[in-house]
Design a protein around this nucleic acid. Structure first.
Lengths: 122, 122
DNA sequence: TGGCTGTTATAATATGGATATAACAACAGG
DNA sequence: CCTGTTGTTATATCCATATTATAACAGCCA
C-alpha cells in the first residue's frame, strides 16, 4: 500500500498516517493478521521521524485497529467494539449533517454520496 | 440557544463554539439574519476569553456561515457554496465510513443512523 | 553474538490554543 | 458632541502538542 504524507497539510502527520492505514484496512489493502512496516522502516520510507510513526501506531493500538507483537511489529487486528463506535459515529455524523444542512445539501444527497463512496472502493 | 463548553474536552474551545453554532443554524435555533451575541458578551456568558470567541466567529465568517456587521455584530448568513462543501463532505465521509467498515458496521446501518439523526432534530 | 523488533527517556524546536491588556475606528443613542 | 458598544488589531505570556533528534533498553531470532 502506498502511503503519502502531505507536509503542507494542517493535519498532523501521525493522524495522516493513522487515517490512511484505517482506509487501507477498510479497502482490504491491509488484512487481518497482516504486519505493518516497522516504525523505523516506515519512517525511513516516507521521510519522517521514527517517533511520529510510533505515535500513529500507538493511537491505532489504543483505538483497537492493531495489536503489537514484539516479533512481528504492528499487526492488523480490529476490535469491533460496536457500542463505543456507534456513539462516536453518531456525534461525528451529527456535525457533518448539520454543516451539510446549512449548505442546502439534502438528506437524499447524503445517502447518494454514501452509495458513491461505497461504489468507489470496491 | 444554550451554549455549553466542556473544558475537559480535547476539542479546542473555539471549535466547540463553532460546532455548536453550526448545529444551532441547522436546527433553526439560529435563523438567517439573526445576530449572535457580541464577542464580549458571549465570552462573559460562557466564562472564556474574548479572543477565543473572536476566533470562532472569524472561522465561521471564513467558512461562510456568518457575515460581520460593525453595528450588529456577527449575523447568520449562510453562503451555500455547494461545490466546495461537497468535496469536503466527501473526504470526511470517506474516513468515517472506513472506520465504521472496519468495525463491522454495515452500509445499511449508516443509512439508518442518518435517518435517526434527521428524525431527532425535527 | 549481531541485528532486528517495540518501548522508553530526554531534550530541543516549532506551532497553536487560550489568556491578558490595550488600543483603534465605526457607529448608535442620548 | 460624548459615551458606550461594536469588531478588529497588536503585543505578550503561558501551556500543550507535534516533530525531530539521540540514545538506550529488553525481547526475540538466525
Amino acid at each position: 500500500m502506498i502511503i503519502e504524507i502531505d507536509f503542507n497539510s494542517d493535519e498532523a502527520i501521525y493522524l495522516q498516517l493513522r487515517n490512511q492505514i484505517i482506509m487501507g484496512i477498510a479497502t482490504s489493502q491491509f488484512q487481518e493478521g497482516d504486519s505493518l512496516p516497522s516504525v523505523r522502516q516506515l519512517a525511513e520510507l516516507v521521510g519522517i521521524n521514527m517517533h511520529t510513526v510510533n505515535k500513529a501506531y500507538t493511537v491505532l493500538k489504543q483505538e483497537g485497529f492493531v495489536k503489537v507483537d514484539r516479533r512481528r511489529g504492528a499487526v492488523i487486528a480490529v476490535d469491533a467494539d460496536r457500542a463505543r463506535t456507534l456513539t462516536g459515529l453518531r456525534k461525528q455524523l451529527q456535525l457533518i449533517l448539520a454543516e451539510s444542512s446549512c449548505r442546502n445539501i439534502s438528506k437524499e444527497e447524503i445517502h447518494e454520496l454514501i452509495e458513491e463512496i461505497y461504489e468507489e472502493y470496491r
